[in-house]
Amino acid sequence: MSEEILTSNFFELFGLPVSYRVDLNQVQQRYMVLQKQVHPDNFANGSDQEKRISMQQTSWINEAKATLEDPVARAIYLLGLKDIDFSLENETTMDAGFLMQQLEMRERLENIQSESEPLDRLEGMAEEVKAAATVMMDGFVKSFEDERLDEAREWIRKLQFMQKAKKEINTLIGDIEDELMS
């Protein structure tokens, strides 16, 4: 059945070597080629079976693309291929200094709306988060390529915090901009 494809790995699906370094242009190009073959619109007049398989295949391709394009999701997926698990049960404690930093940042975010020029401050924090994430990403790539997988996993756990912070900052920026407009 169609499950053959649904178990292929995302890198193979996009004709890429299994590596953290991904040519995003190729991802986009290959995505178009794949979609033109399998998208449900090609089977608008097809049988229910064709429609179902096409929907499953397209979902798989969309999931693959989203994973390959997101640096953190891609890293987690790569670690998963090497049997490194990210489920919560296996969490070890993280380094205390890092957690303190996270708490501080959280507090700053909570109070930011009462400060003057909150937008500028948020933009500043976004820059900080971005810089920190770049360092962690580099750390991950180095550990991963040297096959120090536990270390690589720790970098990604920290990166997940950064990703969450980035999202919260963006939401706050959005809320403040909306308020300014109305």
């Binding site: 494809i5 794949l34 073959q37 295949q57």
Partner: peptide
């Protein structure tokens, strides 16, 4: 459907 996606891959 399988050969379809394979040829695209």
């Amino acid at each position: 459907m399988n050969s379809n996606i394979k040829s695209a891959m």
